[in-house]
Nucleic acid binder design. Structure first.
Lengths: 252, 252
DNA sequence: CGTGCGCTTGATAATGGTCAAGACGCGTGG
DNA sequence: CCACGCGTCTTGACCATTATCAAGCGCACG
């Protein structure tokens, strides 16, 4: 099945570059992000065994939906993913954006059902990590167990940061903070910290930050007028990093 | 050290009731909440071994502070705890309230340092669970490993609910939702779902919900005028559960 | 019996939402 | 290749919700 997806992707004209389909955790250039722990190469080989790499998603396709049976967590290899939940009254709440090297789907463990949906913001390559295998492997590989506890803990602290942002910060601060977050995550992947393309729409940004599209747009305009950011549709250039930090009201 | 705290608590005149000091997980009436998984009684005995029960806290005392070395997670046995972080500009963000049977401190795993502070809202008895022991035990006890993955996942989904609340809901909806949350958690402990005493101040409620004290107070007044809630300082009585649900805008 | 803190209530102000219109960009089809 | 149309983004005018500021109440505690 997963093989078929990759086949059909090829039939539709995608060039399966060697990088995308033949990587393993040992040679993946993202492994310092995805597996920050120094796993022994033996361990990495074992982890490799259980990971499935055959899930290229097209823009708009779902990786999973709220309520789906929980089977696996997922690592983003390329592209980007938006996670969101649907509220009681049918509205959508974006709960996170996931970039290469980042792991999502851990919210499904508690009820054995995904608590949110995940869809591709652009074409995305994904590593699927079956949770049952991960559990078994964790039991015999303390560093892996530790790593996953840490990953989940990281998700909690990240959520707390967002909670604080939503609870205490102005529209300017929220948007500036998101730009800084994306910048930092880009830098971690050895990409430019000052120039990048936003994979998500203004609606998604607003939704994530608890703001309307109009407000997001106005904040971008303001930042341009202040000459701390250059915005050309989805292309962002940070002109004055300190200025953006000042707007976000962060010390670090 | 933990023994000393309990000693000093006794010196200061606390009566160590049998219930507080001689429980074990096997006979703790909270174990259906705290350990929802059906651990075998052997397993529970092993867990008992590592749990330390000598941390009665007085109102205002800290269980841990942001930046402290992370050693343990904690279960509330009685009383209530408020978790909060301090923002860059020195303000406080309440990230959660914890009641008997609930577990906190898992945000410290990712950096080996507590990411938030936790203080007692009233006298509280706490079980301390050293994380290193928990990890070791988890490796040989699959149901315990699973349970902790689930607990952390639960924390993530709870945070997502709060994120949605802060991002999408009005002041009325936020306060009503908190009242329902407390009511539900009370019911889980076989306490009244309609009458309870709030352990936290209006400031804490507002802080948690991203509102000012004044707004919280006004919402309570409005709910009283609507005759769906009776508020006498910290004593709450839900007069019309459906009415509160309607105000919170939840279907369930 | 005062003093202070927590809570409530009122008046006013500001931030961001809503509604509306127009610009821009992109894909499709003539 | 250009025109059309739709979806996304921007900008403006106005409005609503909630924050801010201010005052007063009541209970607990010294």
């Amino acid at each position: 099945m997963t093989i078929h997806i990759s086949d059909s992707a090829q039939r539709e004209g995608f060039k399966p570059c060697a990088h995308d389909y033949q990587v393993n955790c040992g040679n993946c250039r993202l492994n310092s992000i995805c597996l920050p722990l120094a796993l022994e190469s033996d361990d990495i080989a074992q982890l490799d065994e259980i990971i499935q790499r055959s899930k290229p998603l097209q823009k708009g396709q779902h990786l999973y939906r709220e309520g789906d049976d929980f089977q696996s967590v997922f690592a983003v290899r390329s592209g980007s993913i938006k996670a969101y939940k649907t509220t009681d009254d049918g509205r959508e709440q974006v709960t996170g954006f996931y970039f290469p090297g980042e792991i999502l789907g851990m919210d499904g463990i508690s009820k054995n059902q995904h608590a949110s949906s995940a869809k591709a913001l652009e074409t995305a390559a994904i590593c699927e990590i079956p949770f049952a295998s991960l559990e078994k492997l964790s039991a015999v590989m303390p560093s892996l167990q530790r790593h996953f506890f840490q990953l989940m803990s990281r998700e909690i602290t990240d959520d707390q940061v967002l909670i604080t942002l939503l609870s205490k910060n102005s529209a300017d601060e929220r948007v500036a903070a998101l730009m800084l977050s994306i910048s930092t995550r880009n830098a971690r992947r050895k990409l430019s910290a000052t120039q990048f393309r936003l994979p998500m729409s203004r609606v998604d940004i607003g939704n994530y930050l608890g703001l309307t599209v109009e407000t997001v747009s106005r904040v971008f305009s303001r930042m341009q007028k202040m000459e701390i950011l250059k915005v050309d549709n989805k292309e962002i250039e940070i002109l004055d990093l300190e200025g953006v930090r000042a707007m976000a009201n962060v010390t670090s």
